[in-house]
Structures are given as C-alpha cells and as structure tokens.
C-alpha cells in the first residue's frame, strides 16, 4: 500500500549529475588531507566580564597589592647574577640585601630555633661581598671552626650563616654552649648562580656529605 519510493535505488546517483554542474570525466574535489586545526573555531564566545564599581575597585586592589608586596621585605629577591669580570663597583651595588640577614624582625619566639640567622659585620680583612669563589666545597676541620666561632662571637654584628643542621643527628650539636655554629663560607651567590645558570637542580653537590659545610 505504501506508495512507490521516490528514487530510492542505491546503485545509482539520485540526482542528475549534469544538473549539479559536474560534466563527464571531471573529477570531484579531492578529500581534504590537512590535519585538524590547532585552534578550532569557537562555537560560543565567552560571556563578557562583570563590570562596575566593585569590579574596578577590586582590580585596583589586586594590582596595588602585587606592587606593594614586591617592595616589602617578605619578597625575597634572588641574589644578583655573577658577572664575568668583577668590578670594583660591585662592592657598592646591591640588588638585594647585602647581608644574608633577614631585614625584617620576626618574633623569634614563634619560630624554630634553627631558622635564626646570625648577622655578622664584615671583618676588616675580608668583605662579605668578595670572597674566594670555590666550586668545590672545602672540608673544614671542626675544631678550627669552633675556635673561629669563639672569636667571632665577640664581634657586635655578624654576617654569616650557620650550618647547624648537618650535625643534628649528632648529640654534640645540641650540647654545645653556643647556639649557632658558624663557619666560613662563600658568598652564597655561587649556589644560586649555578642553579640559575644551568637550570638544573644544584642538589648534586650537596647530596654527598651532609656533615660538611655547604655554601
């Protein structure tokens, strides 16, 4: 009962080829062989951002905060990159705090003891900025260190860091009269330098021997 289908044959084309404009022998356009686009067309665009006083104010707050925090002492800048040739003027230029001291005063009562950095004024015969730069760690005799410490303790201000933690496992560390061990060390920029320079973790060197000083 259903009426005859309207040209339902599968084997033949269902439209008049010539009517579509393809003449005999002409090839159909080749299939596209290009890879899909990296950024396909977006079907829908993002909804516009909210506007208004509140939005403007918070935007200003955000940008001010970001700017302000960069100037606060909590913003720790990496030390200056090492220059190939040391200039005399380097001594007087600072891209960050000259000393390794923290330049704001935390309440040390709230912090673990180990975090305190003692600050030492540069001694006359050496300056904190220009110190011999070694790539290798120099093993120092512990007793030498202790003697030096006792000397240095007498100075008013100090600039150095201590490497107490390596010895934590050893009892003596805790029993010492001094709170902090202090050792000679190089300007730490080396450390940071290497890290920045080759982009790799500098950890390689320091893994070897925990008992020794790090720089």
């Amino acid at each position: 009962m259903a009426g005859k289908g309207r040209g339902s044959g599968r084997g033949q084309l269902t439209f008049n080829v010539e009517a579509v404009g393809i003449t005999r022998g002409e090839a159909l356009p080749p299939p596209t062989l290009q890879p899909p686009p990296l950024f396909p067309n977006l079907e829908y665009k993002p909804v516009p951002l909210q506007t208004g006083e509140e939005v403007e104010y918070m935007l200003a707050l955000k940008q001010e905060l970001r700017g302000a925090m960069k100037t606060l002492p909590y913003f720790i800048k990496p030390a200056a990159p090492k220059k190939d040739v040391e200039r005399y003027s380097d001594k007087y230029q600072t891209s960050g705090p000259v000393d390794n001291a923290i330049d704001w005063q935390p309440d040390w009562r709230l912090l673990p003891r180990e975090l305190k950095i003692k600050v030492r004024k540069p001694q006359k015969d050496k300056s904190a900025v220009v110190l011999p730069k070694h790539k290798q760690r120099v093993p120092l005799d512990k007793e030498e260190i202790i003697k030096k410490l006792e000397n240095l303790e007498k100075k008013e201000e100090e600039v150095s860091s201590e490497e107490e933690e390596e010895n934590k496992e050893e009892e003596e560390e805790k029993e010492e009269g001094e709170e902090y061990d202090e050792e000679e060390h190089e300007e730490e920029t080396d450390y940071i330098m290497s890290y920045f320079d080759n982009g790799e973790d500098f950890g390689g060197d320091s893994d070897d021997n925990m008992d020794e000083a790090t720089y």
Partner: peptide, 9 residues
C-alpha cells in the same frame, strides 16, 4: 638547590 640561608629566610 637553595642555600640554607635563603631557605631559612
């Protein structure tokens, strides 16, 4: 790979 001082800070 950070110096102890910097880590403390």
């Amino acid at each position: 790979g950070t110096s102890l001082d910097q880590v403390k800070k």
